[in-house]
């Protein structure tokens, strides 16, 4: 888990520092417990019993256990990418699918690998494969992302981040 001070003092990751095929530092979360899942349900007021009522999940819904929420996974990936880009890069886009279920006892490794790089308008756009891998192997959340990093000696990544037409076109190629 990333500490407060690590996030405050994180050195900037630059476009120049990365090459296609590089693995970025992973974030390990877990083992997850029913309390973690319940905390998320309470935070977003999601009262669906499959996330905190084990008897209901198993005997009524036929699930192996209570399930980690898809919304939790949807929130962890942007958080991970945000951390990678701090302090002045930008986690622009992430897309993913929901695959393997996450249940209490699972440990999740959030990961990213560089699949492409391009320089657009003086900024470094980095394409990533991303995911949330379970401790016993399956991928729970495979996807792709685009982060925007400064280039050494180049201009700052603007905030708010408004993607230019060139960025959007490149993104769809």
């Amino acid at each position: 888990m990333t500490s407060d001070s690590e996030l405050r003092d994180k050195p900037q990751l630059y476009f120049d520092d990365l090459a296609v095929g590089d693995d970025l530092p992973a974030l390990v979360i877990g083992p997850l417990t029913p309390s973690h899942l319940f905390r998320w349900s309470a935070a977003i007021e999601n009262w669906h019993r499959i996330h905190y009522d084990q008897s209901f999940a198993i005997y009524h819904e036929g699930l192996p256990n209570i399930l980690a929420q898809g919304s939790w996974k949807q929130s962890i990936l942007p958080r991970y990418l945000k951390d990678l880009c701090l302090p002045d890069g930008w986690a622009w886009k992430v897309g993913f699918q929901h695959r393997a279920m996450i249940v209490p006892g699972d440990t999740v490794t959030v990961w990213a690998r560089v699949t492409g790089k391009r320089e657009v308008d003086g900024l470094g756009l980095v394409s990533l494969d991303v995911g949330m891998r379970l401790h016993y192997g399956p991928e729970s959340c495979p996807g792709t992302a685009t982060i925007v990093l400064p280039i050494r000696g180049g201009r700052s990544v603007p905030y708010p981040f408004e993607p230019t037409a060139d960025m959007q076109v490149e993104e769809t190629d």
Binding site: K93, Q97, H98, G143
Partner: peptide, 11 residues
């Protein structure tokens, strides 16, 4: 079936 999600962040 859920076919996937995408999040684009501006601010």
């Amino acid at each position: 079936l859920n076919a996937g999600n995408e999040i684009e962040v501006r601010s």
